[in-house]
Design a protein around this nucleic acid. Structure first.
Lengths: 199, 199
DNA sequence: TTTTCGTTGCACACCGCTGTGCAGCGTAGT
DNA sequence: ACTACGCTGCACAGCGGTGTGCAACGAAAA
């Protein structure tokens, strides 16, 4: 039976706290070191290495978490038989807080760990491309770009706006959703109808 | 008169070669060191420091170059009395090769030199926001986002597509222009008319 | 009580990059 | 011929981050 001893529980707590804090710290500054993360988690650097043998392990674990959460939302949304644009709106709405939390991964995709992250993010990219492809095939989305690239750019914009939401609170999820719909080729009137007129 | 001695000329040549090569190398890998740049320029690391006292100086010079080129195009385009969307199309067309060359600056905006670059890029941001604002005021562009943010995101996408043009030759300038027009709120039919139907 | 073990605090080696100093070399300018 | 000077090649110090080793502490487990 999966009954945890008190020791194991407190170990998982610190481990989880490190992961959570790492997301914050790295979100603030992607170049933050293990020391910064440790301090922010109220722990010594050595302890972090006790849980994650290397920095790459930490990043990888973070990425795996993100992939799990996003694919969860994405498969659910993709399973429905609603129109592709409506599915996209629902996806953005549900993934928004997640995207905001894991925004650091977008920055980390370039440089050192880019390859590892990119590899793990593969499933997400595929599901996303599938959704966009479906929209293109049903003439809901425009076809000025291949589905693979269009999906990347569109959710890249959503991430970017989720990111700028940190410094500059102006845009918000609604504006980001509209923007992504527009670049997917959805007419403005339809886009506004989909996200609600803001009332 | 600005007649250069042979020595001064060859000095400027190496200096320019370093700058050009730095753009290539950093474009390939924004974390490349002074050593990589020097080697690629067929020069010793020490020589690079002879021309640019610090890495920051190099980056700054690169940025200044970019700002000069982009503002040149942007002011010309902005000066015309054409519609904002047509002006945008012309801007992208003319700035495309430049954006592709200086794509590294977008990556370098996050991290260490971000502040310096951001400062130098100020004028560009302003001119860009002006153009978008003009479009919004004349109901050519949508207003789901404030001009400052919308302009940033739109030309961010153009840069990103110019970047992906390196690995993946598919999109091209035309597709990037259409995408940016769409997210600016220009209807698809109008966008296609503006960039030409590809014939 | 005795053992186990996560955590601590320190030590250390290693690495890569930045920036500097300096002697020497070759060539363009005088 | 002599000087000036950009480039070279090397050495060196410094910095900041990573990853490891180890003795010691304290609390949960046996």
């Amino acid at each position: 039976m999966p009954t945890e001893s008190s020791r194991a529980r407190s170990m998982n707590e610190t481990r989880d706290r490190i992961l959570d804090v790492a997301l914050d710290v790295l979100g603030e500054n992607p170049d933050a070191g293990m020391g910064d993360i440790a301090t922010a988690a109220g722990v010594v650097r050595r302890t972090v290495y006790g849980h994650f043998p290397s920095r790459l392990d930490l990043i990888r674990t973070l990425t795996e978490r993100a992939v799990t959460e996003v694919t969860g939302v994405l498969t659910e949304v993709n399973a429905t038989d609603t129109a592709a644009d409506a599915a996209w709106v629902e996806f953005i709405a549900r993934v928004w807080p997640v995207a905001h939390r894991y925004r650091v991964l977008l920055a980390l995709r370039r440089g050192e760990y880019g390859e590892a992250i990119h590899g793990l993010l593969g499933p997400v990219d595929e599901l996303l491309a599938d959704l966009v492809k479906r929209g293109q095939d049903s003439d809901v989305f425009a076809q000025h770009l291949p589905a693979g690239i269009l999906s990347q750019v569109a959710y890249g914009v959503v991430f970017a706006l989720a990111d700028s939401d940190r410094t500059n609170g102006t845009p918000g999820a609604r504006a980001a959703t509209i923007t992504s719909l527009l670049m997917l080729g959805v007419p403005e009137s339809r886009a506004i109808a989909l996200v609600g007129d803001g009332s």
